[in-house]
């Protein structure tokens, strides 16, 4: 399959998964009812379910999946490491921590939008700490080390919040939120998160060529005219805006940014710039399908989507490590 045909295929799959996400749920609502609910002036229960429950969920599945796939592709290209993903540089961890703190302090109960805002603030703080720790012209290795250190620190602080949770219910709420979910999100979440994600995407889109050049190593990339300090700044801000917003509204959804670029890379001839749009589409397809799967698998108990992606992703990670080990020996 050529890269162009792959993009068409993934585009069609994304559209189908999006429609599927609108159609599938506990209430049986047909395609014609969904269309008239979306575009007609209906105000009944059906219209309410489609517009206020399923539409935001589908939009968030699409945009968060695309965010995770795109930022995974960009990070892997920049760090030249197929194991990199947004969680690695601590952005997801701090976004989670920011959101958890709004639970912990009770601010989110008083003011609903504090939750997503806390997540975005956490992501931005992680970026500042990362820049402070690793320095402006950090090598990919320094950046990974600083990111891993930050991610562990965020994890420790999150555990501390759990440890001192005011009551078992608050702790449970935090744990459930950390598992990651697209359920019960409203159009408010869409309005708050999507503009940040789009801004991040635009910043990342400009990096494709510099990631191609980095295939040749840093010196060669710089000799081809790329200012790697600026590339890194754009990358960190782009990733934290998009992933910070995504994590803030949906919790920590891992492994999408790892698995999707890895599967699609051979189909785009391993070229980092070509992998970016493919991974964005692939991430959207994967998350939309995973979200449909959790609705079908356990309609009454709500299987968390972050649990499902981890169940798929972790064994995938094992296989990756196993293969790398064989390559080395």
């Amino acid at each position: 399959m050529s890269p162009a045909r792959l993009h068409v295929f993934l585009g069609v799959m994304t559209a189908l998964a999006f429609v599927g996400s609108l159609l599938i749920g506990p209430a049986a609502i047909g395609l014609d009812q969904t269309i008239s609910a979306l575009f007609g002036g209906d105000v009944g229960t059906v219209a309410l379910i489609v517009k206020e429950v399923r539409l935001p969920r589908a939009i968030l599945g699409l945009t968060i999946g695309a965010t995770l796939g795109l930022s995974g592709a960009v990070l892997q290209g920049f760090l030249r490491n197929p194991l990199a993903e947004p969680g690695l540089i601590g952005v997801s961890g701090f976004a989670s921590l920011g959101a958890v703190l709004t639970f912990y302090t009770g601010v989110s109960a008083a003011f609903a939008l504090a939750l997503p805002l806390g997540g975005i603030a956490g992501a931005l703080i992680s970026v500042m700490l990362l820049r402070g720790l690793a320095g402006r012209d950090a090598s990919p290795l320094t950046l990974i080390l600083a990111g891993v250190a930050l991610a562990s620190f965020a994890g420790a602080l999150t555990s501390l919040a759990l440890n001192f949770a005011p009551n078992p219910f608050a702790a449970l709420e935090i744990v459930f939120w950390l598992l990651g979910s697209l359920a019960n999100r409203s159009m408010d979440h869409v309005y708050l998160a999507v503009p940040f994600m789009l801004t991040g995407w635009v910043m990342l889109a400009f990096l494709g060529r510099s990631l191609d050049a980095l295939t040749l190593g840093e010196d060669a990339a710089r000799s081809l005219g790329y200012n790697l300090g600026r590339v890194q700044t754009m990358l960190i801000i782009g990733v934290s805006l998009s992933v910070g917003a995504a994590t803030a509204v949906a919790g920590a959804i891992g492994f999408v940014g790892l698995v999707v670029p890895h599967i699609l890379r051979p189909y785009v001839g391993h070229r980092p710039s070509a992998l970016m749009p493919a991974s964005a589409l692939g991430g959207a397809v994967l998350l939309l399908c995973a979200d449909i799967a959790v609705r079908l698998a356990a309609p009454d108990r709500e299987l968390k989507i972050g649990v499902l992606t981890a169940l798929i992703g972790a064994p995938f990670f094992f296989i990756l490590v196993w293969r790398m080990r064989k390559d080395i020996s």
Partner: peptide, 8 residues
Amino acid sequence: GAIHWAVS
């Protein structure tokens, strides 16, 4: 010179 990805 290094080559980091398996491009053509």
